[in-house]
Design a binder for these strands. Structure first.
Lengths: 332, 332
DNA sequence: ACATTAAATGTAAGCGCTTACATTTATAAC
DNA sequence: GTTATAAATGTAAGCGCTTACATTTAATGT
């Protein structure tokens, strides 16, 4: 591999000049610029990015920590981020945290030790305090789907209360009065917010929230399955079920079929996230759109703007959910 | 950030000795090793991986090029790879090629210019010649789901002929005699192989392959939809449809419903890949398992073994498909 | 033509490590 | 106590760039 030294030799200029044309900032005359690029072409020169990083103290890499590399949720997010960075010559180092505190911390440590210029974190298990302390460190980061008031300018969020409200309101508008709810884990903020929105809509329709119609799941498919089974056994009847995410909704659908319920006639089911497979289930799932791809893009823009001082579209931190009507809610 | 220099100062030893304890190879006495690690702890020292890379000419990073970051297929693959590398201190730089020749080349160039020690490629559009030329370069790579005879030792493959055979054989065993087929694009080897397997099974049952029952799709959902619509209009009736992947199968399912066919009674549908959402569609899709996660792991092991000279489980390059029976095939 | 200033280029010191080689110290053999 | 040999440590030269600063060259004003 040719080095900058050989290029400078061939072009008959100094190292510094070659470096200048590479970073095309400084004042270089057109004539020498041409000489240099010609030499580069002739040698097939490619700058060594490691050496550049060491000398400039900028690795041009940003770390991304997600809970899972697989699953329907993170793909679009990663995709949005990768897309934005690729055009800017930045690269993405990816790690998975598996929603486990230790592994999330490890992942963050790992990414920092790889000299990432910035981090994009979708973390769940790590504490607020940890993140606040991290924010004092040298590596800037932005959070997706997590709110910490001390770090509010770097939290990219969905308005989950609104989403929860929209979901329940739609079900109510179809005439349902007895609505069961399978929530996410109580310690997760998004789960709490979605439930909060649910209660708001109920209140708006002068309906009381019934604890018996609440099952606490964990956002995984299996808990949707178990949830409906459990709810089906208690005494308060219901005609609709709202699930705090699509995975649980799909689990509930399987459960409903096992219970012999025809969908959506005997039970309406609402999801949340608008994950891509919601169009594939039968009946197609009515759900709330989570613009995760856009939010990923925004996180990338945040980094470009705040860390690399690039021109970007205006930064936005709060995103709005949207109702997606399909066929899983029946008219009552 | 503390540097190796400060550590050596505090520990009262030379740079070289500190470096030695970091790479715990050379002969260092227990006493000095302790002194050094103590100094490291005290300073909260973390080696600068960029400097390490420059000096050692090894970036400890491996590039991964996939077609898409989203979608059901690549998630498990990336996951398998990330998992394997994380424990070894290697990191993954990810890029997407979008099945487009130019973008795939760009992605490869990009990864190489980031000084990856090795590449794992899932490429489709780039030519054999290009890859053969690439193999002469300084960056070693392994291919997933692509066979090039000149590079056969670094091609990690699924036995697609066998998979195609298994799929059709199962359908035949359920008593179907008239079987339509929606294939992938004719220029893709895996599509050709799957179709080849289909024909083999047909021959084994003394059935003739009927061109009228073949529709060429492109592995995307929409082409499954269009495919069934088209097949439904030709004159040769059929009771089963085999799709060369799950996405097209799902598209065909939607099409079937639009045509008023009840599934699987009036039409049996078989998929391929065993992507995770096949369990969620209704009826649950019978399909062929593609052990993509394991193949990802194997690619990572290949790199660990061949590039980093690590001990790994024995390398394997050919993987076997497996029939997954669910509920989308009726008994005839 | 000369001084003044700006633009273009060169010089050389790092960035934080690794590693070949040189040197010192400990261990063993006689 | 020597000398031979191995183990432990130190020295210093890079790895391929960037960049502050110094120097040269060109442009401008008078």
């Amino acid at each position: 591999m040719a080095t900058i030294y050989e290029v400078s030799k061939l072009a008959g200029v100094s190292l510094a000049t070659v470096s200048r044309v590479m970073n095309n900032n400084a004042n270089v005359s057109d004539a020498t610029r041409k000489k240099v690029t010609a030499a580069m072409d002739e040698l097939g020169y490619r700058p060594n990015s490691i050496a550049q990083s060491l000398a400039s103290n900028c690795s041009n890499s940003v770390g991304l920590l997600v809970s899972e590399l697989q699953g329907p949720f993170y793909g679009p997010m990663m995709s949005g981020i990768e897309n934005t960075f690729r055009n800017q010559g930045k690269h993405l180092i990816i790690a998975a945290g598996h929603s486990d505190e230790e592994r999330e911390k490890q992942g963050i440590e790992f990414l920092i030790s790889r000299n990432c210029d910035a981090l994009i974190l979708h973390v769940e298990a790590v504490s607020d305090d940890y993140l606040i302390k991290l924010s004092k460190g040298r590596t800037p980061f932005v959070l997706i789907n997590r709110y910490i008031s001390e770090l509010s300018d770097r939290c990219i969020l969905l308005n989950n209360i609104k989403g929860g409200y929209l979901a329940t309101k739609h079900v109510l508008e179809q005439g349902h009065k007895d609505i069961a709810y399978i929530s996410g884990p109580a310690w997760k903020q998004d789960a709490k917010d979605r439930l909060e929105g649910h209660k708001q809509a109920l209140a708006e329709f002068n309906l009381e929230f019934d604890e018996n119609l609440l099952f606490q799941g964990d956002f995984m498919e299996a808990s949707g399955y178990e949830g409906l089974k459990a709810l089906h056994q208690q005494t308060h009847p219901f005609t609709a079920l709202i699930c705090a995410n699509d995975e649980m909704a799909v689990g509930a659908m399987a459960s409903a079929r096992d219970l012999g319920l025809t969908l959506p006639k005997q039970l309406s089911i609402m999801g949340y996230d608008n994950v891509f497979f919601t169009r594939h289930v039968y009946p197609q799932l009515t759900t709330i759109n989570y613009p995760i791809n856009e939010m990923g893009r925004m996180a990338a823009d945040w980094v470009l703007n705040q860390v690399y001082q690039k021109q970007t579209p205006p930064l936005q931190t709060l995103f709005e959910p949207e109702l997606i009507v399909r066929h899983s809610i029946s008219q009552q």
